[in-house]
């Protein structure tokens, strides 16, 4: 059962990483990257590294996601040919 857990987690990691790079829309890619970070937290937990899992949960899931989403919004708002409807 351990082996099945690890293999499934590895497959989910690889698939989300691949979709992150392959989706055409940058907003979707960022959300998939957040999902990748959450899955990576589980991977650190499986690798008996709770301190790294703690750092990844705080940084990879919270901080990096917020930074990337903010950057996407800022780039989109300043793009000239597309009027981002600011509400």
């Amino acid at each position: 059962m351990n082996l099945a857990f690890d293999l499934l987690l590895a497959a989910a990691l690889l698939w989300s990483a691949w979709r992150t790079l392959a989706t055409p829309q940058i907003g979707r890619a960022v959300i998939l990257f957040i999902v990748f970070g959450l899955l990576l937290t589980l991977a650190w937990a499986r690798l008996d590294a709770p301190d790294i899992a703690l750092a990844e949960a705080a940084i990879g899931a919270g901080l990096t996601g917020a930074l990337l989403l903010d950057a996407v919004a800022a780039l989109r708002a300043r793009r000239p040919n597309m009027d981002g409807d600011e509400t």
Binding site: A17, V30, F33, L47, I52, A71
Partner: peptide
């Protein structure tokens, strides 16, 4: 932005190999 994402994925791969 995509290059930054890819760079982060690369770093995560290196970390996984190390641990």
């Amino acid at each position: 932005l995509r290059r930054i994402l890819a760079f982060n994925l690369m770093g995560s791969g290196a970390f996984l190999v190390l641990v």
